[in-house]
């Protein structure tokens, strides 16, 4: 692999080859505490989550609904810093967590940390991409540039309200995948998708061959399944945050939920062989051929 190809790039490439759908999970760093986050990184990696969005808590999360707002508020009580985010992920990588991890943050904490220091630092410690929900890419080209130069994938959000011209621009600027915001509104669990989602995704496909992951309001495995038919995968956030809140510091139920989502998105043959060999649930044991076998990916930046 070329040294500038991060885990996310590799994962997406592999998924395309296999024709496999992608499950991206969002959790808030430090919610309810840092040790739970550490356990979840390992647990979700094993549960069949393809990509993890690690949300950095911010005092004013403009794009988030009540569930993630409350999680951010709680996490902020632990005085979370970008250095803490870096060390948590560095530790997880040492323990063999292999899934691509995206740094999800509002723009202000990144600006205060310093764009170059941020990009180089998080890449060195094992992050693979960045999502900034309040940063249209034309607003701060220098920051986007620093992120890309560090070998991180900068993922753009595209909205139902985005014009064709805008979609084209965002698709061009988005690396590895495009995050399609399924509805007008903030993050949070919803019963239904907005009308016209299929049409918008078809519209977006005209401008990009990159996979499209659908997020905002994907709250049940059933919804994840139907959205995965339209797009190339889903981003699930508030549903995980709710599960984490209900688990009160435990992680087993959250991991179980991730497995349910994984089955819904990937079909039955979804688990990775190396992690599940020897378990009754292992598709290999049940005589099914896993469609994707992921070897532990060498950390290309080290």
């Amino acid at each position: 692999m070329p040294s500038n190809s991060n885990r996310l790039t590799q994962k997406i490439r592999q998924a395309r080859r296999e024709g496999r759908k992608l499950l991206c999970a969002y959790i808030t760093l430090g919610f309810p505490n840092l040790s739970t986050t550490e356990k979840l990184l390992a647990g979700l990696d094993r549960a069949g989550v393809d990509i993890l969005e690690l949300g950095f808590p911010f005092s004013d999360p403009l794009a988030d609904g009540p569930t993630i707002q409350a999680a951010s508020e709680r996490a902020l009580k632990h005085s979370i810093t970008i250095d803490i985010a870096r060390s948590i992920v560095a530790k997880a990588r040492k323990r063999g967590v292999a899934m691509p991890i995206i740094f999800f943050s509002y723009v202000n904490p990144i600006l205060q940390y310093g764009p170059k220091r941020f990009a180089k630092g998080i890449r060195r410690d094992g992050f693979d991409g960045v999502i900034i929900p309040d940063l249209p890419p034309d607003e701060d080209p220098a920051l986007v540039d620093a992120i890309q130069r560090a070998g991180l994938s900068f993922v753009n959000l595209v909205a139902p309200t985005s014009s064709n011209e805008r979609m084209k621009f965002l698709a061009r600027k988005s690396k590895d995948f495009i995050y399609y915001v399924s509805r007008r509104g903030v993050t949070g669990e919803r019963k239904q998708f907005e009308q016209g989602m299929d049409r918008n995704i078809r519209r977006l496909r005209k401008f990009s061959r990159n996979p499209i992951l659908i997020g905002f309001g994907v709250s049940s495995p059933e919804q994840a399944k139907s959205a995965s038919r339209v797009g190339d995968g889903v981003v699930v956030g508030s549903a995980f945050i709710s599960a984490i809140r209900q688990a009160k510091g435990g992680t087993a139920s959250v991991v179980k939920l991730a497995q349910k989502f994984s089955r819904a998105v990937h079909g039955r043959a979804s688990l990775r062989a190396p992690d599940c060999v020897g378990r009754a649930s292992c598709p290999a044991i049940r005589g099914e051929t896993p469609r994707l076998l992921v070897a532990p990916v060498a950390n290309s930046s080290q």
């Binding site: 403009l62 794009a63 723009v107 929900p133 309040d134 940063l135 249209p136 607003e139 753009n156 959000l157 595209v158 909205a159 139902p160 309200t161 985005s162 014009s163 805008r166 965002l170 915001v181 007008r184 509104g185």
Partner: peptide
């Protein structure tokens, strides 16, 4: 500038 979610740009 405009540091807002994409939904609001249009």
């Amino acid at each position: 500038g405009r540091f807002v979610p994409e939904t609001l740009i249009s």
